[in-house]
C-alpha cells in the first residue's frame, strides 16, 4: 500500500518538475510527458485511497493524514477536470506543485489505519468532510490561477482575452469553493447539533471556517464592483490560499478544540 502512496508522491514531484521545465523552455513535448506522469500519479493515488478505504471499511477521511491525502487528490482531480473541459493546459504549471506540497504534508503525518472514533460515526461524516475537501481544492485552484494570471500579465505581451479567461476561471472556482464551504459549515452545524447538542460552539475550527467564508464572500463582492480588476482579484485569490491552508491544517495543530481528531 505504501508503494502506491510514495509512488504517487514521487510521480507528482516529477510531473511538477517536468511541467515547469516544459513551460519555462516552451517544450511542448516535455509538458506532454509531465501530463502523462501526472495522470499516472493520480491513478496511483486514487488506487491508494480506494485500497485504504476498503481496508478500513470506511471513507479514508478520518485523520489529518487521510484528509490531507484526499485534499491533494481533490486538487489533482479538479485540475484534471478543468484542464479537460476548458483545455486550460496553462493551469498545470501552477497547480501540480501545490498537489505535491499538500501530499508531502500528508506524508509527514502518522499513516496507520485507525478505528473510526464513535464521535465520527455518522451519516454526516462523508458529506461534511467530502464537501470540505473539494471546497478547499477549488480555492487552491483559484489561487494557482491567480498566480498564473500575475505571471502572465507581467509579461506585457499578455493576451487580454486569455487574462480575462483566467480571471473568470479563478472567480468560478471561488464560487464553487464558496458553495461547498457553505455546505461544509452548514452540515457541520447540523452534525454538531446531533453529536454535541449545539449547532455552533465557536470552536477554533468553526471560527476559521467562518473567517475563510467571510474572506471569500468579500472577494465575491469586490469583484462585483464595476469594471474588471484582474490583477487585484488575482492577488486576492492568491493571498487567501494561506488562510485556507491554515483552516485546514494550522487550526488543528496549534489551537486545541473539538475538531482535534487524530
Amino acid at each position: 500500500m505504501n508503494v502506491l502512496f510514495f509512488g504517487s508522491l514521487v510521480l507528482y514531484f516529477a510531473a511538477a518538475v517536468l511541467q515547469f521545465i516544459g513551460t519555462l523552455f516552451k517544450k511542448d513535448k516535455v509538458a506532454r510527458i509531465a501530463w502523462l506522469v501526472f495522470l499516472a500519479s493520480l491513478a496511483a493515488q486514487t488506487a491508494y485511497l480506494l485500497v485504504r478505504g476498503v481496508t478500513a471499511r470506511r471513507l479514508p477521511l478520518s485523520n489529518q493524514f487521510e484528509f490531507a491525502t484526499a485534499f491533494a487528490w481533490g486538487i489533482a482531480l479538479m485540475l484534471l477536470i478543468v484542464r479537460l473541459r476548458l483545455k486550460a493546459d496553462w493551469l498545470s504549471v501552477a497547480v501540480m506543485p501545490m498537489v505535491f506540497l499538500v501530499l508531502s504534508y500528508a506524508a509527514l503525518q502518522p499513516r496507520e489505519v485507525t478505528e473510526l472514533m464513535p464521535a465520527l460515526r455518522s451519516a454526516w461524516f462523508g458529506f461534511h468532510i467530502g464537501a470540505a475537501v473539494f471546497s478547499y481544492s477549488a480555492f487552491i485552484i483559484a489561487g494557482c490561477v491567480g498566480l498564473r494570471y500575475l505571471i502572465v500579465s507581467k509579461k506585457g505581451s499578455a493576451d487580454e482575452l486569455k487574462l480575462h479567461q483566467m480571471d473568470y476561471l479563478s472567480y468560478r472556482m471561488i464560487a464553487l469553493g464558496f458553495l461547498l464551504l457553505t455546505i461544509t459549515i452548514l452540515s457541520g452545524a447540523l452534525w454538531a447539533e446531533q453529536a454535541w447538542s449545539a449547532f455552533w460552539t465557536w470552536d477554533p475550527k468553526e471560527v476559521w471556517a467562518l473567517i475563510t467564508w467571510i474572506i471569500y464572500a468579500v472577494y465575491l463582492h469586490l469583484r462585483l464592483r464595476g469594471k474588471r480588476q484582474g490583477t487585484a482579484m488575482a492577488w486576492y485569490a492568491m493571498i487567501a490560499v494561506p488562510v485556507v491552508l491554515f483552516t485546514f491544517a494550522g487550526v488543528n495543530t496549534i489551537m486545541p478544540g473539538l475538531h482535534s481528531y487524530g
Partner: peptide, 15 residues
C-alpha cells in the same frame, strides 16, 4: 464589506 471584515477580525482574536 466593512462589517464582514470586522466580524472576521473579532473571530481571529476570539480564536
Amino acid at each position: 464589506i466593512l462589517l464582514l471584515l470586522l466580524i472576521a477580525l473579532c473571530s481571529v482574536l476570539g480564536s
